[in-house]
Design a protein around this nucleic acid. Structure first.
Lengths: 243, 243
DNA sequence: TTAATATTGTCACATTGTGAGACAATAAAT
DNA sequence: ATTTATTGTCTCACAATGTGACAATATTAA
């Protein structure tokens, strides 16, 4: 949340009072997959050492889900991504205006933005996206956004570490439903690719034969022609996700 | 939501502006089990034919989860019940001030309560409670609260039917975790009782032998002495839920 | 007092699902 | 031509689950 603060290039009005619903924010945990590792998008506030999950606010006449998709599109350029709400964090203690004040001080004053110092509840989402498709936009003066390995994260402010942990737990327990893991891969992928995704999410090795048998048993993948990979072994089939 | 409106017995201040977080409500789907059927609590606004899920608002300095527990305690008298958040509904279209205005008109005016006509997002919870423990409190002038069979519900206002449907879907998919079904039963119950709960929730018959084997295999139930039921057959064991 | 009835606790069997290893196939390097 | 690494698939063992059967037993009926 609070990611478009102090962004001088966009009209100041969008951060003024009466543009967004008060007390309501969203935070998103954006998962990507690269180099056989699971990564997430983390934002850094300019002129500070504060790291946070990308998030934002909900326009007065904007659907909640639309607001989150808008925010993700602005940051990743991606539309039509896999996005799922998983929990709403509403403790009083999660709102720590001290952080916000420090961020504001570091970026030029508090006057207009007092509403952001009030208490917020945050609706949390997680997204699965194809790492290769993303073009991160360093457009905001107030922030930068980058990929981090899950096991090499900077410290996150607010309760964002707790949000991330719950996102990961939800992702793990939902992994089977509708083969959602394929959303982290390009349109064509090998069975090994998919197994790597599963192993990164679950944090454990899976048996190759059993994995293939189970996945193919779902009848959700379409098998394509083999593609000679250039590696010194039998070429694997390529698959795409159908339906 | 909106259940304590126009309740003349409690201090008017609690419904005035600046008591609750604006734009934020909660709704709860309260499941009970009786007569081998699944039931839910539905509220009716006085002087109207409007039925709704019980809900409420979040105090300015109140944790979200605490607010929901407070509301349920006020209505059912129960503390320490099984309660789980499952989704936050945030579409613009879900807020239909026409209903609220009608309810207000029927109960004495709009002046003080204009804030309730604005847009709300609602964090939805479901609760599982022991039907026999509940003493419904018809305390509010503005409402009454009663049990309804799941398949014999009045029409619900706002998007409350959608909320109920999603609650039921969540309950079904979470049913196995930690034997949550026992929360709908008294402290001592038979295996048949538990099977009835499962069948009511899942909407299908289960095989008696396989059910018993699976449940006992979890090692979460403690077996007690038999209790002669008075029925013309072998007496069943009683069980209680342990940890 | 005995037999009938309904339901319980448990088991045996068949079927299905899963974990583990084996083996031939094959693309590239040697 | 041989070696190497990985793939696709298979078989075996074992676990989990679906299904019906049986004896046990609390009450009712005869």
């Amino acid at each position: 949340m609070f990611s478009y603060l102090f962004l001088k290039k966009i009209p100041a009005v969008i951060l003024k009072p009466n543009t967004y619903l008060k007390h309501i924010a969203y935070d998103s945990v954006v998962f990507g997959f690269s180099g056989e590792k699971l990564k997430i998008l983390v934002m850094k506030y300019k002129n500070t050492d504060y790291y946070a999950l990308p998030g934002g606010f909900v326009g007065l006449d904007e659907d909640l889900n639309s607001a989150v998709r808008r925010g993700l599109k602005e940051r990743t350029g991606l539309d039509n991504i896999f996005l799922e709400q998983f929990y709403t964090f509403g403790n009083v203690s999660r709102s720590t205006p001290a952080f916000m004040e420090a961020i504001m001080e570091a970026n030029g004053g508090v006057n207009e933005y007092g509403w952001m110092l009030e208490r917020f509840i945050s609706i949390a989402y997680y997204a699965l996206i194809n790492y290769d498709d993303v073009e991160l936009k360093p457009e905001a003066i107030s922030e930068s956004c980058d990929w981090y390995d899950l096991n090499n994260l900077p410290e996150l402010i607010f309760d964002h570490k707790e949000i991330l942990d719950k996102a990961l737990a939800t992702l793990r327990s939902n992994l089977e439903t509708k083969l959602m893991g394929v959303n982290l891969l390009p349109p064509l992928f090998t069975m090994k690719d998919l197994q790597n995704v599963y192993e990164a999410i679950l944090g454990e090795k899976l048996h190759r034969g059993a994995f293939q048998r189970k996945i193919l048993g779902m009848n959700l993948l379409k098998r394509h022609e083999k593609q000679f990979s250039g590696a010194a072994h039998k070429a694997p089939f390529l698959y795409s996700f159908e339906k």
